[in-house]
């Protein structure tokens, strides 16, 4: 089976692209993450992640319109590919498996004496 590797930030980006569905491009992704997760995202970090994800084949892109506030530069819209979908699903499944494996006691520290 293919080994899906997703970093934490990459996963966040993937998911956000999914959330934004048809309107995921640099600025909107950045805003979305910042709003939802309450963390700042630098353009550099985001672009690197997007490039890496696209290189891995998890995202695909198309060129969009250039608006006035972008000084005519085109937007680059991202979409999750089939492979990308499997990658986040795989990641989610792994997490869930891990959640399930945690003993009840571990999540109730009060019971454990210091």
């Amino acid at each position: 089976m293919k080994n899906f590797t997703l970093g934490e930030f990459e996963e966040v980006v993937m998911l956000t692209v999914g959330v934004l569905y048809d309107s995921a491009y640099g600025v909107s992704i950045k805003m979305e993450i910042e709003q939802r997760l309450n963390r700042t995202v630098s353009v550099g970090a985001l672009q690197i992640a997007l490039k890496r994800l696209e290189d891995k084949g998890y995202l695909k892109s198309r060129e969009g319109e250039g608006t006035e506030e972008r000084a005519g530069r085109p937007k680059k819209y991202f979409q999750i590919t089939a492979l990308g979908k499997r990658a986040i699903e795989h990641s989610r499944a792994q997490r869930e498996a891990l959640w399930k494996a945690i003993p009840k006691a571990a999540l109730h520290p009060k019971i454990v004496g210091r």
Partner: peptide, 16 residues
């Protein structure tokens, strides 16, 4: 390859 749309993003963010 990356220049145009990143520049677009940067400019858009700048205006915001």
């Amino acid at each position: 390859e990356l220049r145009r749309h990143i520049e677009g993003d940067l400019v858009e963010l700048y205006h915001l």
